[in-house]
Write a protein that binds this DNA or RNA. Structure first.
Lengths: 338, 338
DNA sequence: AACGAAATCCAAAGCGGTTTGGATGGCCGA
DNA sequence: TCGGCCATCCAAACCGCTTTGGATTTCGTT
């Protein structure tokens, strides 16, 4: 070859100061030799780490679940399409701040994604101080205009779902929500309450729960409520997984979902829990969390490419899809009781 | 301060050639200034990337599911405890090889984990050629002794589970397996068949399925089989998620799981699908995939620390846990039919 | 009191790229 | 024929750390 390091670098990186012929030769050689620039060296020289960080606390919370993975899968595709790496840090809850500080001071990533913002979120303040670009998956209450985020309209989705149940004649509607110190769950609850208020109804605390969205959570609470006096005729559930539990609970009580008791769940469109077919099993509000991951990544990469741009955000509406799990409220005399 | 770069580096990295007093001063200063060595520079200088790669194909396969995430969570903890980063690459199926090549040639990671080995696995050959340390989660048939791996005893687990069902009097046992071109599913099937053979029974192809382990997969096949002639009295299922589907299907047929029809499932101990309590919902073979992740990471880090060490492996046995979903085979006259 | 070993610390040379500021040569118009 | 302008290519500086090989100081010994 007998070419300088400069020329090789320029040829490989597509700079114009190199002839087409030379570029071809370089590419050919690199291919034959299996050469690719050492990424550490390149990162050091350019000052960009070409990586996006995701720090996830170790605790077994809602996030550490398939929804999170699906988001990651979406984001990961976008990253690799743009030549970025994805860096995951699984840390002790107490060291979450440290993790961000390390990413910033050691320049481990060019930006991060904030997962699962809480009602009293503070991570964004730290990240601003650290001057680390970030995008929020969800929204930070009170900081909507000064941060970049992507979120679905949780309030509206649950308002619409509740209205559907009300239209079907249900008035005793139970809400099995996620942890309400998380922003998304908080909004869903507001949507639920707003819809009830719109019909002059007030929510019954006995029919509202907030916890990690496991399967048994759905089952146990469904059974408890259905066996209580004045049981609900419908359930509004925050996750497919819990909804499956609710369905099981309904079955345990000798009732039939979609007939004796209605269910509407939120469906994150998880790959291993398909809820489709001609008539999906569950009536649901659906929003692909994988798509959210893709978009969040795009947003973040754009921010990194143009640091002076204003914060951007994407607000998506969930679809309301009718499935087999909803029906009109049964007339009292037909209403089976355990 | 007025200390040389050399001294600072040594102080921070715990080398002995620096006095305790100086080390203290350096640490203090670093803390006050929020200084931490740039990781790219360090990686370049040391030649070690201090990262472990996980490449996951984009396709929606069994891996891209909560089980994978749980493994990741376990491994991630171990990594961060040892100062390693975790690098995830989500790539197009066709580019999986490229991804490994890049990791090796650009020195993006010091080692990788192979997920979901197939019956005709080849990735390990490439990695050997690339001289990239790796650990297999699962086993590569025919390469057990020359690779490092961690696996549960799939064959034995399903053999024991099948024997339990046989002991309860079941002879019509259905197997809803994962994709059998994957090693783990292949082994589970062998366990199932071995147990049957041990009692002089031969498996009925009409009662065996192999597919992605979704919820509907469980439900649809359970319904189809139960409505067929000569239906099974028990199901052996490869995943909790599908098992939930099976339970739903059984309910749809007007039968009761654990009474009319038995279910044993494999339980990966996923956080959002707890199957415990005094008497777990499902009788299961259980093995924590999160623990597997921790151990795999430890194995790999050890390999990296001592490249000359022989391949090591960890073979774990699953627990067989009795839950509510199994019972003796119902006598023919009591056997409800849809 | 002189000497060698041990304890500390430092200057400078990598690590493997990117980028800056020129050098070189071919081709054009005057 | 010659100066000027591109089009190409190159030498060297730099990115921020680790590590090598020495220099300097301290201290126990004889």
């Amino acid at each position: 070859m007998n070419l300088s390091q400069t020329t090789v670098s320029r040829a490989l990186n597509g700079y114009p100061e190199v002839s087409a012929e030379t570029r071809r030769r370089v590419a050919e050689m690199a291919d034959k030799l299996g050469y690719a620039p050492n990424s550490q060296a390149r990162r050091l020289a350019t000052g960009r780490s070409m990586a996006i960080g995701h720090v996830i606390p170790r605790s077994i919370h809602e996030m550490m679940n398939p929804i999170f993975l699906e988001f990651i899968a979406g984001a990961g595709e976008t990253y690799s399409r743009h030549g970025y790496d994805m860096m995951l840090s699984v840390v002790d809850d107490a060291h979450e701040e440290d993790a961000y500080r390390q990413i910033a001071s050691r320049k481990k990533a060019d930006g991060v994604i904030i997962h699962g913002p809480a009602n009293d979120e503070r991570r964004h303040l730290l990240l601003k101080k650290l001057n680390l670009p970030f995008v929020v998956h969800g929204r930070i209450p009170g900081a909507e205009s000064e941060t970049s985020w992507i979120d679905m309209n949780n309030r509206r989705a649950f308002e619409r779902a509740t209205n559907l149940l009300l239209d079907l004649g249900h008035t005793r509607i139970a809400l099995l929500n996620g942890l309400e110190h998380m922003d998304f769950a908080h909004r869903r609850r507001r949507g639920f309450e707003d819809a009830l208020a719109g019909r002059g109804l007030s929510p019954d605390p006995a029919l509202m729960r907030s916890a990690d969205m496991t399967e048994p959570y759905g089952c146990e609470n469904a059974v408890a409520m259905l066996k209580g006096d004045d049981p609900p005729t419908a359930f509004l559930v925050s996750s497919m997984i819990s909804a499956i539990g609710v369905a099981r609970g309904i079955g345990q009580c000798g009732l039939k979902a979609g007939k004796d008791v209605s269910i509407i769940t939120h469906d994150d469109a998880l790959s291993f829990l398909p809820n489709c077919g001609e008539v999906p099993i569950f009536t649901c509000t659906r929003s692909s969390v994988r798509y959210a991951g893709e978009k969040a990544a795009e947003l973040l990469l754009a921010m990194i490419a143009d640091p002076d741009a204003k914060p951007a955000s994407l607000h998506m509406d969930a679809e309301l899809i009718i499935g087999q799990s909803t029906g009109p409220v049964p007339s009292p005399q037909n209403q089976a009781r355990p």
